[in-house]
């Protein structure tokens, strides 16, 4: 019973923090709200019997990716909302309309089915997850590592300062 309460509290936290993150005009504040949302999502993952994904969520998402965003925002000196790249009501109106239509249709479609708590399947130990990962999905692991290598090379190429007098 306490787990259900924690789940709904964390769900409310995640949704409110995400709404605050995308309506915030200051990019640094938006990133910090998003980190709050990601932490509550990590605890939701832990409640859903996925401690490995929860740990990676904290380490990779909140730890690495968001810090990368913060680093780029501070390096390019973008933390000035008064320079005017933030959307006005002309941008918010169609976005609100389209996403509220989508949210409404999703909620109607999901609620029309009878929601029941399923039978408790056996918990997934990390050993089983790792066996599955490296035995069934070995090729995917190799492809992901190649993809990370390509991203590294591409980022190095894009970030290289051009020789001889600035950018062309």
């Amino acid at each position: 019973m306490i787990e259900q309460t924690i789940f709904y509290l964390l769900a409310a936290t995640a949704v409110i923090a995400t709404i605050l993150a995308i309506t915030e005009k200051h990019p640094v504040h938006a990133i910090l709200y998003l980190v709050t949302s990601l932490f509550s999502m990590a605890v939701i993952f832990y409640l859903l019997m996925a401690p490995l994904v929860a740990a990676f969520e904290v380490i990779l998402y909140a730890g690495a990716i968001m810090v990368l965003f913060l680093f780029v925002i501070m390096m390019l000196d973008l933390g000035h909302p008064e320079k005017g790249l933030s959307p006005g009501w002309r941008e918010w109106l169609p976005a609100l309309l389209l996403s509220s239509v989508s949210i409404g249709s999703l909620i109607v479609a999901v609620i029309s089915r009878h929601a029941t708590v399923a039978a408790y399947p056996s918990a997934l130990p990390i050993r089983a997850v790792a066996m599955r990962l490296f035995q069934e999905h070995g090729l995917a692991v190799e492809l992901v590592s190649l993809q990370l290598l390509f991203a590294l090379v591409g980022a190095l190429y894009l970030g290289k300062q051009s020789k001889g007098g600035g950018a062309k």
Partner: peptide
């Protein structure tokens, strides 16, 4: 869909 709405609104 919150993310999608934000993507549509912050398209600049």
């Amino acid at each position: 869909f919150i993310g999608m709405g934000g993507l549509l609104a912050w398209r600049a």
